[in-house]
């Protein structure tokens, strides 16, 4: 894989708090990567580092082969749509779009107009009079119409209704297919976006729990139900991420390891764990020892 951005052993400390601890990963070029994790996991911090809004306490961040901090050449090719993006008070929608058109060399004004109509945004309305969802739509329009080679969306759809969100997915896919570029998107609405992703990063408490392609996540874990002792016997050859019990019956999320017995022979009811359930189970599981955490999935047979 070719990397648009690399993060090497990056730690980010704020006075009392370590937001990222020794994170190493790379963002694949021209792929859509999902950045997943709980509130406060470190997603926004990672995006701020990738876009030169912060400098890491230690480690190295490179985008297009150079450090992004105060680097015009990198930043002109980067579009970062922040959660709850603020605009100057007197700005109307069209002022924000005009400003963005000056900033991004690849700006597509026609696409911006189409998206304005899609999201039913009145171009002349002052942005501070917009609802939360409409404010999010402004960010989405800028993010897509910028055609920036590296586009980051941080929780882009606060307040957007389900119809508008699907419009966003459709427009994103259509435009990305025509103009492939590197897209990093953080979201809590995992189920909605799972099939759009090519890569998945999961952060928890400042550490990377998953760094893999989306396809290999599918089928990498099973949710099993049945007698607790049988679940324990089955899970012994795998990773037991989460177990609920009720009167001797259990429900468990088990991450499969190569070499362990398949769930078919366990005498348990088994179904594949979808990405959202896996993220929940992994985020709730006690922190694993660091060495094996990031590539643990690679040995699982498909």
């Amino acid at each position: 894989m070719t990397a648009a951005a690399t993060v090497s052993d990056v730690t980010m400390r704020f006075s009392e708090h370590t937001a990222l601890a020794g994170v190493s990963t790379s963002i694949e070029q021209n792929a859509i990567t999902g950045l997943l994790g709980r509130n406060g996991a470190g997603k926004t911090t990672l995006m701020q580092l990738l876009t030169g809004h912060r400098v890491p306490s230690s480690g190295r961040v490179e985008v297009f082969g150079a450090r992004p901090y105060e680097n015009d050449d990198v930043l002109r090719r980067t579009c970062f749509i922040k959660e709850g993006q603020r605009y100057p008070d007197h700005f109307r929608v069209r002022d924000a779009l005009h400003g963005a058109s000056l900033l991004f060399p690849g700006w597509d004004a026609d696409l911006a107009q189409t998206l304005l109509a899609d999201f039913e945004l009145p171009a002349g309305r002052p942005i501070k009079k917009l609802s939360r969802g409409m404010n999010s739509a402004v960010g989405i329009i800028i993010g897509l119409a910028s055609r920036a080679p590296f586009t980051l969306f941080d929780e882009p759809y606060a307040g957007l209704d389900v119809v508008a969100r699907h419009q966003f997915y459709d427009r994103l896919l259509a435009d990305y297919a025509e103009h492939p570029r590197t897209i990093l998107i953080s979201t809590h609405l995992i189920e909605e976006i799972a099939d759009l992703l090519e890569r998945v990063l999961l952060i928890d408490r400042g550490r990377l729990l998953l760094d893999t392609d989306a396809e290999s996540v599918r089928g990498s874990a099973v949710t099993v139900r049945g007698p607790v002792d049988r679940i324990r016997a089955f899970a012994a050859g795998h990773d037991l991420l989460h177990l609920d019990t009720l009167a001797g019956t259990g429900r468990a999320v088990v991450r499969l390891r190569s070499g362990g017995d398949g769930p078919d022979t366990s005498g348990l009811l088994a179904e594949p764990t979808n990405l959202q359930e896996l993220v929940v189970a992994m985020s709730l599981a006690p922190p694993a020892p660091r060495h094996s955490s990031t590539d643990a999935l690679q040995g699982v047979p498909r």
Binding site: D195, L197, E198
Partner: peptide, 18 residues
């Protein structure tokens, strides 16, 4: 095409191409 499939099924174009 892979782009048509991606849009129709709402999946990543690389997956459709695969």
């Amino acid at each position: 095409s892979s782009n048509e499939l991606a849009a129709f099924h709402r999946i990543n174009p690389a997956t459709a191409a695969k």
